[in-house]
Design a protein around this nucleic acid. Structure first.
Length: 222
DNA sequence: GGTCACCTTGGTGGACGCGA
DNA sequence: TCGCGTCCACCAAGGTGACC
């Protein structure tokens, strides 16, 4: 497996066990939220990630290592949020880094932020794994479905980034505190309890705010 | 809108049985 | 006796309805 091979290269000591839920699907929105909760690191790091991606495109393996060290814990958190299972989340992250390395040359900073590109690939890979899991559960699933590998193509991923703009616009309509809650829950992967603890709110309020915010987002998206 | 209580779901660990 | 698989109870987290 290429993914396993690459994970070995990234972590020769085999130490891959780290959980730190945090991620970004939309850099601008996330940066604003993180600013709200007092974390400026992401905005500063975004430039470093893009630089590392460009270095990867030039064949610099250490650059990929830097991205892995900086983002893999958060990526696992995001993937785990989607896939529920730690093992699948790690698999998704490994696959994502293989794709990132393979297609780094196609990354275009003019079309989107590096973090956005990385997390779009990760999210897409996680969803593909999720589909595969469901497919194995239901043997009668149609065979002619679109192959996951096609969607894994970063070019396709990049083209889909525009679809996120509608969601981004709808997020903008939410009050900042509500937007922050939604992103903390679904982008950073924090549990309701963690959010409640961090913001000093009753857990019931966190649940209600998230729920009502999601309803508002659904209405906004039509 | 904020909060609480209840229900559902998924993960985890221990107990138990079975076969080598 | 040991290893493995299955079952079950418990717990944490998410979702939802209802009350204030």
């Amino acid at each position: 497996m290429q993914a396993e091979k690459y994970t070995e290269a990234l972590h020769p000591e085999g130490n891959r066990r780290r959980i730190l839920p945090l991620g970004a699907g939309c850099r601008a929105a996330t940066a604003r939220v993180l600013e709200t909760v007092g974390d400026f690191a992401l905005t500063q790091k975004a430039g470093e990630i893009e630089a590392a991606l460009l270095a990867c495109a030039a064949g610099d393996k250490s650059a990929l290592r830097r991205i892995y060290d900086a983002e893999s814990p958060r990526m696992i958190g995001v993937a785990q949020r989607l896939l529920k299972r730690r093992a699948l989340a790690e698999e998704a992250v490994q696959d994502a880094f293989v794709l990132i390395w393979r297609h780094a040359a196609r990354f275009d900073p003019q079309r989107g932020a590096g973090l956005t590109w990385i997390y779009a690939i990760l999210r897409n890979r996680a969803l593909s794994i999720l589909r595969d899991e469901k497919r194995t559960e239901t043997s009668e699933a149609p065979l002619g479905e679109e192959m996951a590998s096609e969607e894994d193509d970063p070019e396709t991923v990049m083209s889909k980034l525009s679809d996120a703009r509608a969601l981004h616009a709808c997020l903008e309509t939410l009050p900042p505190q509500r937007r922050g809650l939604v992103l903390l829950a679904f982008v950073q992967g924090l549990t309701h309890g963690e959010i409640a603890g961090r913001l000093g709110l009753p857990i019931g309020s966190v649940k209600s705010w998230i729920r009502r915010s999601l309803i508002a987002l659904k209405e906004c998206l039509g």
